[in-house]
C-alpha cells in the first residue's frame, strides 16, 4: 500500500510543487534578464533586488476580481484554463530528474510518446478559451495559436523520431541510459535535431520570436484577453510550465539528463561527485535562461514567415534528418 499509493503521491506532490515554485520564479528571472539586456535594473522595489516580486505577483493575481463576461459560455470559460494547465503539469510524471528511481515519478516504456500526446491536449485550452470568451480578438488569437501549435507539433514530433532511432527506446530513462552507453550526449550526435526541437519548442510555447498569438498590437492581448484574476494566472502558469517542459525534454533527450559531461571519460569521473539531479537542474536552468535571452534579443516573426518556417524549412529538415539517421544506424554502425 505504501509502495504503490503513498510514495507516488508524495513524489507527485514534490514534483508539482517544485514546478509551481519554478513557475513563480520564471517571470522574475524574465524581467530581470530583460532589464539587464536593455541596461536597466529590472524590478527593484519589492524586497532585496526585487526578489520578493516572485511572491507578490501571485498574491496580487489571487486577490484580483475574477470576471466572467456576460455573453461568455460560462462552462467552457471555466474549463479552458483547466484544460491548459493539467496537460502541462501531467508531462512531468515521466521526466527523470535523476538516475535513481527516487527521482522520477514513473518510467513507462512509451514515455516520449506520452509527452507528445499529452502536450497535444493542451491546445484545447487555447482554442476553447478563445471561443468561450465570445469576443472577436481572443477568437482570432486562439485560431492563430492553434494553427501554430499544430504546425510546429508535426515538425517536433518528426524530429523526435530520429532521436528515438538513435536511442532505440521510447522510455525517457532509457534514452538517458543510451547516452551513458554511447558516452556522448545526443546533442553531439544529433545537433540538427536539437536545434529543430528547441525552435519548435519555442514556437509551441508561444515564445518570442513566435509569440503571434499574443501580439498585443494586433490582438489586444491574445486568447486570454477576457480573462482576469486566477483564471488568467492559470494560462500564465500553463505557459511557463510548458517552457519548463520543453527545457526538461531538451535536457533529457540531447544533453544527457542527469549525466555529467562526457560520462565515458575516466579523467572526468570526479564530476560524479555532484548528484545527478543538480546536473539536471543546472542544464534546465541554462535552457530556461536561453529562452529568456532569445525573447530579449529577437523581433517577432510575421504570420506568413512563421508558417513558411514551420512547413517549408523545419519539416523537410526533420524528414531528411530521419533518413540520414536511419541510413547511418543501419549501414554504418
Amino acid at each position: 500500500m505504501v509502495d504503490i499509493v503513498l510514495i507516488p503521491l508524495l513524489k507527485i506532490a514534490v514534483v508539482v510543487n517544485a514546478v509551481l515554485v519554478l513557475v513563480t520564479i520564471m517571470p522574475l528571472l524574465e524581467r530581470k534578464v530583460q532589464g539587464w539586456v536593455q541596461s536597466r535594473l529590472g524590478p527593484m522595489r519589492v524586497g532585496p533586488w526585487g526578489l520578493l516580486q516572485a511572491i507578490v505577483d501571485p498574491i496580487k493575481l489571487m486577490l484580483k476580481e475574477d470576471i466572467t463576461p456576460t455573453k461568455a459560455d460560462k462552462w467552457l470559460f471555466t474549463l479552458a484554463p483547466i484544460m491548459a494547465v493539467v496537460p502541462a503539469l501531467a508531462v512531468f510524471s515521466v521526466i527523470p530528474f535523476g538516475g535513481d528511481g527516487l527521482f522520477y515519478i514513473t518510467d513507462i516504456n512509451v514515455g516520449l510518446l506520452f509527452i507528445i500526446s499529452v502536450t497535444s491536449i493542451g491546445v484545447y485550452g487555447i482554442i476553447l478559451a478563445g471561443w468561450a470568451s465570445n469576443s472577436k480578438y481572443p477568437l482570432l488569437a486562439s485560431l492563430r495559436a492553434a494553427a501554430q501549435l499544430i504546425s510546429y507539433e508535426i515538425a517536433v514530433t518528426m524530429t523526435l523520431v530520429s532521436v528515438i532511432l538513435t536511442a532505440g527506446t521510447l522510455s525517457m530513462v532509457g534514452i538517458v541510459e543510451a547516452q551513458q552507453e554511447t558516452g556522448l550526449w545526443f546533442g553531439f550526435v544529433q545537433p540538427v535535431a536539437f536545434v529543430l526541437v528547441f525552435i519548435g519548442g519555442l514556437a509551441e510555447t508561444n515564445r518570442v520570436p513566435f509569440d503571434l498569438p499574443e501580439a498585443e498590437q494586433e490582438l489586444t492581448g491574445g486568447f486570454h484577453t477576457e480573462y482576469s484574476g486566477m483564471r488568467w494566472a492559470l494560462f500564465f502558469l500553463a505557459e511557463y510550465a510548458n517552457m519548463i517542459v520543453i527545457a526538461a525534454v531538451v535536457t533529457t533527450l540531447f544533453w544527457g539528463g542527469w549525466l555529467p559531461p562526457f560520462p565515458s571519460v575516466d579523467a572526468l569521473a570526479f564530476l560524479d561527485l555532484i548528484p545527478g539531479w543538480i546536473w539536471f537542474l543546472g542544464k534546465l536552468g541554462v535552457f530556461l535562461y536561453l529562452s529568456v535571452w532569445i525573447r530579449a534579443t529577437f523581433p517577432r516573426y510575421r504570420y506568413d514567415q512563421l508558417m513558411r518556417l514551420g512547413w517549408k524549412v523545419l519539416i523537410p529538415i526533420a524528414i531528411a534528418n530521419i533518413v540520414v539517421t536511419a541510413v547511418v544506424k543501419v549501414w554504418l554502425l
Binding site: L113, S117, S120, I121, V123, I127, L128, L143, A146
Partner: peptide, 21 residues
C-alpha cells in the same frame, strides 16, 4: 500503453481538434 498513447495523440489530440475547428 502504446495504443492508449496513440489514442490520445491521434483521436483526442488530432482529429477532434479538426472537428473543433
Amino acid at each position: 500503453e502504446f495504443l492508449a498513447v496513440i489514442q490520445v495523440l491521434v483521436y483526442a489530440g488530432g482529429i477532434v481538434v479538426l472537428y473543433l475547428f
